[in-house]
Each structure stands twice: as C-alpha cells, then as structure tokens.
Design a protein around this nucleic acid. Structure first.
Lengths: 354, 354
DNA sequence: CAAGAAATGAGGAACGTACCTCAAAAACCA
DNA sequence: TGGTTTTTGAGGTACGTTCCTCATTTCTTG
C-alpha cells in the first residue's frame, strides 16, 4: 500500500539496513552477490528513493554559480531576472544561486572567475559565453575538477560541458527563414540582414539556417550580406540607412541579434515603419513593444523562464548524479507574433511563506 | 551563513517553537500581535520553509485523479502519455496519479465518478471535459467538499475550478488567423473551416478569434461557415469533398479540431495535397507527420508535457495551500512549423533508482 | 478578584534517509 | 588451523519540519 522504504528493502533482501545503505549509496565493502541481492529486492518492491528525505538527511545545500556577460543587452537582463526568480523558487529545495557578470569583451576575466571556483563550495556552474579558446580551456578545467557545467543559451559544443540549455540556432534560423519567406509570399526582392558580429557562433548558425531555407524554398528572395553593427546604434543607423537607400527592392529585414531600438528609430525617421517584413530573435521589452506596435512581424525566441529553471534543475540533477528528464529540459523554438504574445509577466515575484 | 530554521524564527521572535509552528501552519489560537511578531521575524531572517523537510514530516502522499474522455483522439492519447510520464517523475515527491477515462458522450458517468471521490483519499482532481450543466454541478460539488479541481486543456470558467491549465482558445484562434492570412498574402478567396462540433467551447472560441483577425486584417479572404464532422471521417470526406468541389477559390483550410487523417486522405485522392494553406491545432503523431510531409503548414499547439506537469504541480500546490508560480504555469500558445518541430520524444521513460 | 477561557511554552515522537562507530560474523590466506 | 582481512550487523544521531500532549501563563469577563 504505502511506499517501500529502506527498511523494507533490508527485510526483503534479508540483510541489514546498513548494507542496504552501502549499496544504495555505492559505498565500498559489499560483495557483488550481496549487491545484487539488494538490487533484486529493490526491483521487486519497486522502491524509489525519497529524494526529499535523502536531501534532508544529507543536509546538503547546492550553491550554483551563473555567469552572464555584463552587456546591456535586453536579452541578458531578461535572463538575469528570470534566473533570480527561478532561484527564489529553487531556494525551497536548498538550491542557491550566485549570479556573476563578466566584461563581455574579456574572456580572461571569465576564465579567472571559473578557475577560482572551489569544488567544495560550488555544486555547479551555468555560463553564457562565446566559445573562445580561453573559455574552452576554462570549462575543461572546471569539468576536470568535477564541477558540472551547463552552457546557457549559447552552446559550447567543443568543451566538456555537461549539458546545453537553449535552442538549436540553426533550426531557429531556419524557422525565421520560413516565416520570412511565407510572409513575403508572391514578392520578389532582397532581404537585409543585420547582426552584431558574425564571430558569434549563434549568429553564424542562424544565418546559415536562414539562407538554406530561403535559397531552396523561396528563390524569389535574395539575402544580402550581413551588416555587422557591433552593438553600436550609430553604426547600425549608418550601415542600414545606406543599404536601404541603395537598394530599392528590399522586402524584409532579419535581425540576427539585438538592435531593434536602433532599427525602429531608423525606419521611423524614413517613414518606413511597417513597409518591410521584420523578423528578429528573443522576446524582450523592446521586441514585445515592437510586436504590439506592428513594427515587428515575428520573433523567434526561447523562453527565459524555462531557460533559467532548466539550467538550475539540470545543475541540481548533475550535482545529485541523477538522470535528466530530457522531455522537460528540451527548449522549444518559440514563434511569437502579436496574437500569441504572452501577457507581460512583470508581476512582483511572490515570496511565499506559508 | 546557513539557512534560518524554525528554531531561529522562534529565537528571533522571542516566542516558542510551538507558536512559530502555529503561525506557519495557520493553526488557531494565536493572537494577532504574536502572529505579526513571528511574521516580522520571518521577514527579517528571510526564512524560506524547507519543503523537503516539511513534506517529509507531513508524511503525506498526494493522490491526484485525472479524468480524460475515452475518445480515440490523438491529442487525448498524447496527453495521457504525458501524464503518465509526469506522474513517474512526480512520484519522487510523494505525488501519485490515477488516470481515469470516461465515455465522451456521457457526462453523467463523469459526474458520478467525481461524486464518488473521497476528500480523505484524493488530494486533487484534474479533468478535461466540456462545460455542460451536469459537469458544472459536479465540479461545484467537488469544490464544496474541499477537493481542488483544475480544468485541463479545456476551461470550465463557470464552475468553481481552482485553476485552468491550458491555452486561451480565443488567442489560439487569432494566432491561427494571422498565420492563415499572412501565408495567403496577396491571395483572394475563401477559407474552409472544419470542426468536430460547434457545441464545444474551444471550437467556438477558436473560430471567433480566427474570424476576427481575418475580417479586420485580411479582407481579401472570406471564411466559410464551419462544417461539422462529429469526429466521423466519412462525414468529413463527404462534406469537405462537396464543398471543395463547389468552391473553386478556396485558398486555405482551417481545422479547428481533429480530422487530419481524413482531410489528408481526401486531398490526396483529389490530387490537391499542398494546394491550400492548411492550419490545424495540437501536435500529434499525425499532425507531426503532416508537417514533415508538407501537407500541413502550421499547427497551433499547447505542449502536452507542460500541460501534464503543470496540472500535477498546480494540484500539488493547491493541496498544500501553497501559492502558484504563475510564470511557470502559464502555457504558451505554440506555433509549430516544420522547421521548429521538436524532435520526436518517444524515448522510453527512464525509471531512475539511485 | 476569581473563575474560566485563550494563548503560549516545553518537550517529544515521527517522517525516510544519510552517515558514523564498533562489534560480530564470514571469507580468505598461508 | 589460526590469524588477517573483508563483509555485515546493530544501533545511534542528525537533517528541518509537523503534530501531538500537557502544563503554565496571560488575558477576559462577570
């Protein structure tokens, strides 16, 4: 009737509680034969360890460290907020989070921060960073010291990261491409593409996916070379302004990264708001406002709340050496238009007591 | 340094542990003044109750009952599978689920099943059912007996249900409308709409949202009256076949409910696969296959895994009289096209022991 | 002001697991 | 065979909370 406990296993296997404990927690000094006797009993009873009780007994608390670039990108601040919220929730299960920011241009600072982490104090690390050699080495070192690492939002495939929490940039780019192509149904012309930097893996992959789809499925459209804005609004204004002036048959604009504010300003200035199909990435206060205003037609996004919760859950699972629920942790590539825009969740975080 | 416990609160508030406990668990017999003294101490210390320990001490287990119609709809079976998976995960937190099916046409059977539930044995009920008077009364009675109820996938707004887990059908219909309109850019013509029954609240609301958008934003399109298929493939085949033959300028087909198999068969038979923009609801093996094959252009969906986990989490929170994390429980209206189709997650459920 | 009611305190057992120590039993080896 | 090593058992404490009981203090009210 009631759930079997460790005592039931002991009785069923005909051994002592101490031995069951040794087997369950993989402690040394048990014969193979005894181990399998215990495991048989476990299987027979359908025992599932009570994680709540286990963690209580361990009286272990989990300190997770999250590292985000200290850029003024809206996505990063949205993500930081989501992480804070996820952390207050995770506090109920003895999981604590420390959020650090590192200067976005200096990976050595990030590497130093990673190197300073003590495996006895830190149960896991989540980081959002471009995959440079310095970062790669630092992540490998972390892994070697036994600290679980998850890549956040931007993957680090060639490091020993334990998990990636985020969406496939290539597929996200393809999704953007299909929407661009279909929203431009019947039109012939060019697509303007803007990015912060084409040195970022994510931008490269998005662009690649986008191009694939347009080339094969929408031959009437022609994708222009990427203009790199380096996060500078003035640069975007100048480059995109020149290109718009020089190219009369632009039908759509694809924003690989940030720059929605600057683009909107430029288009407004020229009276071109709403004249193009505009597709971007990530749901932020600005893209949300632009969607509502009709200046932006679709956003390809990953849910920051899901991202944050998933990162903490995965780290927790890794710290406990527990398996991960793939279905739950898989992030969807969200297509957001005005009609399915989720209501603004800028509610005050409930700090529930009882 | 370490997290504050109930004992710390007692010391800080200058009261005994027993009183703290009375306040924390809202037991009677504490003066207002004392209550606020304790709450102040809690706030000062930033105490967060350790849920693991609390649930352990309660040694309470939660039996949740889920009721789904026993129809052969793919969505329902997908949902049932998701619920099973969510339940094996929830087992780790002493939450158990019983899934029942009721004959879809007989709400009296459902009502009887609900009436038979004992508040001492059942911690919560989730149900997916149309809002008929019989159902409404049964849900009200459940609520009156103190059993939390969540409406699953299909809302029951006029009952005392404690929560609705699902997406807003009206907004989902609007989303479908925008995609239909934009995918038909530059075209003039009619949209065929198919539904199982227009007696279902969800179908009505989807249709209403869809119509709104088409009428205001895409005047070149004209939405035909809904054809009701009553879940019968032959009826769909006949009705839709006649309508297609009679109407030369159909541009798109909107499927409010199921019927993807029958529609695909009809279109294939007439050599019309891919000739219309087809938009439907819910991601099932069939819609997935149709998306991949290119017979279906977009699906508006809610994530069944999320639906299932959310239902169990909400019921659990209600049973514990704990607040709900709105952000986490809010379901997204997903737009699924071929490019962002999540990989098939028909993996075997991992039944982790240690 | 006394009697009764209400509020509070003190203490302990329990939940299921982890982890420790020490002793006893079993297996192994020469 | 005796001694050594390995394996197993027994029992206890701890984790943070819940939920008892019973005694004591403090407030009300007639």
């Amino acid at each position: 009737m009631t759930r079997p406990t460790v005592n039931d296993i002991a009785r069923e296997a005909g051994v002592s509680l101490a031995t069951v404990d040794r087997v369950l927690n993989a402690r040394p000094g048990v014969r193979e034969k005894t181990i399998s006797a215990v495991n048989d009993a476990i299987a027979r009873l359908g025992y599932v360890r009570d994680l709540a009780a286990a963690n209580l007994a361990r009286s272990r608390s989990y300190r997770m460290v999250v590292l985000l670039p200290d850029s003024d990108s809206q996505f990063v601040s949205t993500l930081a907020a989501a992480l804070d919220e996820a952390a207050t929730l995770a506090a109920a299960t003895r999981t604590e989070m420390r959020l650090h920011r590192y200067p976005p241009e200096d990976m050595h600072v990030l590497a130093a921060a990673l190197a300073a982490l003590d495996p006895d104090e830190v149960a896991g690390v989540a980081l959002m960073a471009p995959e440079t050699p310095v970062v790669r080495d630092a992540v490998r070192a972390l892994h070697a010291r036994g600290i679980p690492v998850v890549a956040l939002a931007s993957d680090l495939p060639n490091t020993a990261r334990d998990h990636f929490v985020g969406i496939d940039s290539h597929a996200a780019g393809r999704t953007a491409g299909v929407l661009m192509g279909r929203f431009c149904r019947g039109l012939t012309g060019r697509i303007l593409v803007l990015a912060e930097s084409m040195l970022l893996r994510d931008s490269i992959e998005r662009r690649r996916g986008f191009d694939e789809v347009i080339q094969t499925d929408f031959p009437a459209l022609d994708v222009l070379p990427t203009l790199e804005t380096h996060g500078a609004p003035e640069l975007l204004h100048r480059l995109a302004g020149d290109r718009l002036a020089a190219t009369p048959d632009i039908r759509g604009i694809y924003l690989l990264g940030s720059g929605h504010r600057a683009l909107a300003a430029l288009l407004r200035e020229r009276g071109l708001l709403g004249h193009f199909v505009v597709i971007g990435h990530e749901l932020t206060p600005h893209t949300r406002a632009a969607l509502l205003a009709g200046h932006l037609d679709a956003v390809i996004a990953q849910n920051p709340g899901h991202l944050a919760r998933s990162a903490l859950r995965v780290l927790r699972a890794k710290a406990d050496r527990q398996p991960i629920d793939e279905g739950q942790e898989r992030l969807r590539i969200e297509v957001v238009i005005r009609e399915n825009l989720p209501p603004d969740s800028a509610e005050p975080t409930p700090r529930g007591l009882s």
